[in-house]
Computed example of a mutant assay.
Amino acid sequence: MDYTSLDDFLVRGRAALAKGPVALILAEDLVEVDGTLRHHLKAGFRAVLLFAPPELVLPADLAAQVHRIAFQVKSEGALMRAVNPIVEAAPPTTWLYYCYNAEYLFHPFCETRSVRELIAFHAEERRDAMLCYVVDLYAGDLWANPDAVDLENAQMDRTGYYALARKDEAGHVRERQLDFYGGIRWRFEEHIPKDRRRIDRIALFRAQPGLRLRADHTFSIQEYNTYACPWHHNMTASVMSFRTAKALKTNPGSTYDINSFKWHNSVRFDWHSQQLMELGLMEPGQWF
């Protein structure tokens, strides 16, 4: 179903938020939108909301399965203007997820277990949010794929990830919170603003009154920003993303400085959760 605006959806389509998990997908451009939608529909989300510009044309089968909301994703503050009204409108405890086009959620054992099973177990561990790592994907051959998107030969970094202590406004270290870095945001950091170099994102979370997503991909409730509970490790997931590579190769200020994203630690992405767990980019926690 199509909606002329987010306000229109909140009037006519609000019932889609009644039972999660609900995926919010923001289309910044027209690249790989179809594949992103199909990936998350297959993952088991009960509803998929697509925030997209009017020029996007969807195949009929996808158009029938998603709630399309006319929205300018590239406008200033678009992420918060899209997510926070949905958080406010959703019933408390509804699980939500957000990502951009050319991004794909992977969680432990996702080949055989759905996202519904994932959040059911996570909720049993009294967790209301899940830390995700945004892992950069990129084309191995930029001459053949000038927008850096190549699903058949997607590359990723197998090493080079690290974490630093996260501090509050007073300079005190926040408990169970870390700032994570790595991937091409780290290797090409001269082209990335300092406040956009982190790769941690609380992409899966449960709505509740007063919760707000902030510009740095953290939430107003600090416990949502933690990587684990106090007593043991919890699951984490990965958002496999062409977004940074695509931006670096379509931005005139950086495209001519980058002939290839490949380096000696590049490895082909197998599109399988086992690879991510073996590389330490995903934590199964107590879920076996």
Rank of each mutant, 00 (worst) to 15 (best):
E111R: 05
R127A: 11
C110H: 13
P92L: 07
P59D: 11
D179M: 00
V83D: 03
D179H: 01
A89F: 00
A78T: 08
A154G: 10
A43P: 08
I119F: 01
F51W: 04
F109I: 07
Y181P: 06
Y161N: 03
P85N: 07
A139M: 02
A148R: 11
A170W: 13
R158V: 10
L56C: 10
L178M: 12
A163C: 08
A90R: 02
P53K: 15
L49I: 04
M80R: 10
V83M: 02
W95Q: 01
E125S: 11
F71I: 01
Y133P: 02
H172D: 14
D168G: 14
A102E: 10
A154Y: 06
Y181H: 08
V135P: 06
Y162V: 10
V135M: 03
L131F: 13
Y133G: 09
A64P: 06
I86V: 15
R81K: 08
Y98V: 01
V115Q: 00
L62Y: 03
R176W: 07
Y181Q: 07
T159D: 10
R127S: 11
V173D: 14
K42W: 04
A89H: 00
E169K: 14
L41A: 03
E76G: 03
D141T: 08
E124G: 14
A82I: 01
P91H: 00
A47N: 13
A47H: 13
Y100S: 15
E88W: 00
R81E: 01
D168L: 06
D141K: 05
A47C: 11
P54E: 09
E169V: 14
M130T: 12
Y161E: 06
Q72K: 12
L151Q: 07
L58M: 06
L131S: 10
F180C: 11
D61F: 02
M156R: 03
Y162I: 09
C132S: 15
D157L: 13
G140N: 04
P92A: 15
P59N: 07
A102H: 13
R46E: 12
A89V: 00
A90N: 00
A165R: 14
R68T: 15
